[in-house]
Design a protein around this nucleic acid. Structure first.
Lengths: 161, 161
DNA sequence: TATTGTTATACTCTATAACTATA
DNA sequence: TATAGTTATAGAGTATAACAATA
């Protein structure tokens, strides 16, 4: 698969600057392509939502899940977003300090909390949900609407949940 | 989209534990699905390659790119893998300390380096490339061969490079 | 005893700024 | 002046272990 490595400058670099590298085995490694695609999606998120609203990706996801489901326990948020409990505690601290959500101790099981969006949190959730639309439209230059739907369906199969 | 939030425990949680949460706006955010899929692919990488060979994802990618292209400059590796120069310097230090690669100063442009796999590096590249095959086969339970090929093609469009 | 969530801590990952050397 | 790479530093992200409160 590889051209043999060489110490001779006359033969190097193998490809001129600006060309794409041969991927070799990576061409068939799904995780590599997922990681490369995430460079694009993370950049888009930062430009459309992250910088504008001072939100990290996971914080945005938490707002969206609370908006869509109403109050949730940290446990369920953590399961859905693959966050460890200490990590989630710090994230919720941060959002609570910004006045976006509240922790209410459950009356049913007093070990558990219900995380509830405040009015400000609901407002920010609505604003960022709207900002997500032009973000997704920016993808239209790379992906048709049908391709985009198909891609999401395939990614959900990989995620398996 | 959301059931109104409530402080009344009798109505909470909105969904019982174990059910999937409503995604709301997230259902149409490609980046969310990319991130969720990466939970799966990262886990697979760790089990098949990361833990077994003591390699991080990016280190594996560096080995694969050097295997497929022969010697490369840090600049080209960084462009391909979206790594900042300081980040890459540390990664190359680590791989060099393990005896997997060498930095050779270019005779053509003495600012530049050629990164060359050692015999040990080439050997490890071959071993990990082989280990990637059962890793990809593990995906067959979630994705047909055709779906997998299509998914990779769509992810490449999103990555745009 | 098991579960929910927190605190304490550390390690990895990534970014920015300032620097060296070469061009 | 500009570019390739390094050093120094800090911040963000994520993990484990030990703990408190409750079931």
């Amino acid at each position: 698969m590889a051209r043999p490595t060489s110490t001779l400058d006359e033969l190097l670099p193998a490809v001129v600057d600006g060309d794409r590298l041969a991927l070799g085995t990576l061409a068939d490694v799904l995780g590599y392509h997922v990681a490369q695609a995430s460079v694009t999606t993370v950049d888009m998120f930062e430009r459309h939502i992250g910088e504008r609203f001072g939100l990290r990706k996971v914080e945005f996801s938490i707002l969206m899940l609370l908006q869509a489901n109403g109050a949730l326990t940290p446990k369920r948020l953590g399961q859905t977003l693959a966050l460890t409990p200490p990590n989630l505690t710090l994230l919720l601290d941060r959002l609570q300090e910004r006045g976006l959500l509240l922790r209410e101790r459950s009356q049913v099981d007093r070990r558990s909390h219900n995380i509830v969006l405040t009015a400000a949190g609901l407002e920010l959730a609505q604003q960022t949900a709207e900002a997500a639309q032009p973000m997704e439209r920016e993808l239209q230059s790379r992906l048709s609407s049908a391709e985009r739907a198909l891609l999401i369906e395939l990614l959900r199969k990989v995620a398996g949940r």
